[in-house]
Design a protein around this nucleic acid. Structure first.
Lengths: 338, 338
DNA sequence: CCGTACCTCTATAACGTTATACGGGTGGTG
DNA sequence: CACCACCCGTATAACGTTATAGAGGTACGG
């Protein structure tokens, strides 16, 4: 079917090895033969069989991006960036959806894909440090997000405590006093939820505001539906909050919806802020104030570090990178002009 | 590094071929040896090297899903379904983002990935029938969406004319007379935009309403931003529309935003309807009425048909499937109760 | 008791690459 | 002129699988 090295070797009257060297320059080739080979390649339209190449090289050319929710626009945007970056480096990126399922995450860690992928970019949410330390697979692993800390792998994330701190600080700055948090996690799950919670508490303390447990709403998942449900509960309180900090933008969107249904004005009655800066928040009514991580940076960095590991930078110590974030003010906390 | 067939062949004291037969049952193996081999497999933790297998079999086990916008939640939702279905059938799905770029689409068609993927699920928007007919690659191709018709490939899509018809009919039924369409495509691009436009015109005619060219807004892209921009233009007309039909939900969301910014009430002043039924539309304010295609059916069917072709059902004639859709009434056209 | 038909297993040649080891020219140097 | 060094190229052995051809052994019918 396909045109192989052999075909063009015959055509150009040279050996297989020479053609291979022309194609990927492992050894120098004389100018005359190089041209003859190149011509044959062009005429027959040769493209290397990547499967065979990777078999020989011991690699597959595939890297995986494992995320808890493909439906979350944050991850969709991140995936798009990562796919582009990987393609540029000669790798194909495949997406693995763990659906925030513990079993799925463990399976991924222990490399049921051992032979299939060269490396893994992983955003874990249901497993912890111990599970990562105990993993048996030996392919490079880059962690993103805030699930796990202090493990011997590259790790890229924003500073969650600081990000939450900034969010609360903003709400305080616009005069809010009863600030709720939606998206606390039950048990040991979702480390990032704990971190954001910690930033919430620290910022409250720093502002001299009391921590009120009834203003903390836990959710099972972290989607729009969960945000709406939690917001409804908060509104049912004797003294409802005057501001809400959502674990992510989807929670924030859900909260906005619940507020609209309850006839509350945003931001006059309740201000809302999220994290992620998904495009949806720029078009919601009202638009959603958010903490914007540098997705471009996270996606590109993760892929580049992983590929560097795959291609042999074994010696360098694992790097933990904290990518920058910034506050984006929008209508849900009152526009600067208003 | 990895455990190979050879390792477990030695361990079990049998030949390579026998182990291979135990693993994938090409030839029967005696019960006693089968058990011995199976035990060795379990003890050493063998997993087949898929690269080598696929090299030998002439397949890679990869299928691609090529879509114009990964950021569009409609495609993200579709991708999630397709990934799941593919995994269930033993294939890995990789996403290709054409970014609605003509060159990218042509490249994909002519199989620069010839050796890399076994088949392609493709949602073309910038190329037409001729380009598909002229393609040189010989891997199976399943088309989704409405870009191209009458080509010798499996094709899965909703009936766009009928879907648009249904949308307009609904707007007419709630008493609207000046119905605009956002998302007409310039030139020959976006066949689906033409089809939806046709449904729009037909339904207007069927309702005895005049076709007013000034109520048709073309857009370059099909995102929220384009919807907002177009809606602004429509509002600037001497006689603005009393209803808007968006090419898709993102356009609809953008239109909602423009209406909110202009202080228009929805649906009282202007009703809005889209196509796709993305989750975002269930949480926007107001919620967005839409034509809901059966994404589950489209995604699963596309993968299943592709895999069937790959695995040799060459003879069966290409199938064109029109998947069902339904109208989902939400606030943007007035709730049934109101 | 031989021939034949199984049934189970083995040996081996691919699949398309890349890396290693080697060979045959050419030019420069002592 | 003999020697070494080099440059350019070839031959070939892997990588881990699967499919084909065939080799033993046992059972069975004639």
């Amino acid at each position: 079917m396909g045109v192989s090295l052999k075909d063009i070797a015959e055509r150009a009257g040279v050996s297989l090895a020479t053609v291979s060297n022309v194609v990927n320059g492992y050894r120098p080739v004389g100018e005359r033969t190089r041209q003859r080979v190149q011509q044959a390649i062009d005429e027959l339209g040769y493209t290397p069989n990547l499967g065979a190449r990777h078999l020989r090289r011991g690699r597959t050319g595939l890297i995986a991006l494992a995320i808890p929710e493909l439906n979350n626009p944050y991850f969709a945007e991140l995936a798009e960036i990562a796919i582009r970056e990987a393609a540029g480096l000669g790798y194909t990126l495949v997406m693995e959806n763990t659906a925030a399922d513990r079993e799925a995450e463990l399976l991924l860690l222990d490399g049921s894909h051992r032979h299939t992928i060269d490396g893994l970019i992983f955003s874990p949410v249901r497993i912890g440090r111990d599970e990562v330390l105990a993993r048996s697979a030996d392919t490079p692993l880059v962690l993103i997000g805030e699930g796990v800390y202090d493990v011997p792998h590259d790790h890229i994330a924003i500073d969650n405590v600081a990000a939450s701190h900034a969010a609360i600080q903003h709400l305080v700055a616009i005069g809010r006093r009863r600030i709720a948090f939606i998206g606390a996690a039950p048990g040991a799950d979702r480390q990032s939820a704990h971190l954001r919670m910690r930033g919430y508490r620290e910022a409250l303390a720093a502002a001299g505001l009391p921590f009120r447990p009834q203003l903390v709403a836990r959710t099972d998942e972290f989607g729009r539906l969960d945000g709406r449900r939690a917001m409804r509960d908060l509104l049912a309180l004797g003294e409802p909050p005057d501001a809400v900090f959502g674990y992510n933008d989807l929670i924030g969107i859900g909260a906005l919806r619940a507020l609209a249904e309850a006839g509350c004005r945003v931001p006059e009655d309740v201000a809302v802020i999220g994290i992620d800066d998904i495009e949806e928040g720029r078009f919601s009514t009202p638009t959603l104030t958010t903490i914007a991580p540098d997705k471009e940076e996270i996606g590109r960095l993760a892929v580049r570090r992983l590929v560097a590991r795959i291609e042999g930078a074994e010696v360098a110590a694992p790097l933990t990178v904290q990518t920058p974030f910034r506050l984006v003010r929008r209508e849900s906390t009152g526009t600067p002009g208003a």
